[in-house]
């Protein structure tokens, strides 16, 4: 069986840490998600934090905003990397879905979390 996907969550401020903590609380699965903050980072430092978190493994990288320092750092270093897929607009529903489907290939896992995230946005 191939190695399970790693989830890396890259956000402004303390958002990634809070999202990961909440996803772990809901799912009971710990260690599947790595939070990264852009706080205090210049571009090079943030890019290195992301690379260290992915650590050469297959991964889905979640970013809060589709543009800005977090997505730029991720795309600059991981663009075109076949074992990594990047998903923007991260929300809690996406992360909870992801941790239960880490045996999927990165592209399938990414498509699945996007669907889960979009489905969770409603006006009830």
């Amino acid at each position: 069986m191939s190695e399970e996907l790693r989830g890396v969550v890259v956000c402004h401020g303390t958002l990634a840490e809070a999202l990961v903590q909440a996803a772990e609380q809901i799912s009971g699965i710990r260690g599947a998600l790595v939070p990264i903050s852009n706080t205090g980072c210049d571009r090079d430092t943030l890019e290195q934090r992301v690379l260290d978190a992915v650590d050469g493994r297959s991964a889905v990288v979640f970013v809060d905003l589709a543009s800005g320092s977090c997505s730029f750092a991720v795309l600059k270093r991981l663009r075109g990397e076949p074992s990594v897929k990047v998903v923007t607009g991260v929300n809690l529903a996406m992360l909870v879905d992801f941790v239960f489907h880490r045996s999927l290939p990165p592209a399938e896992a990414a498509a699945r979390v996007v669907a889960a995230g979009e489905k969770s946005i409603r006006i009830p």
Binding site: S67, S71, K76
Partner: peptide, 11 residues
């Protein structure tokens, strides 16, 4: 050009 495209997305 691709870095420019990324930065344009933020604006």
């Amino acid at each position: 050009e691709w870095e420019q495209e990324l930065y344009r997305m933020a604006v």
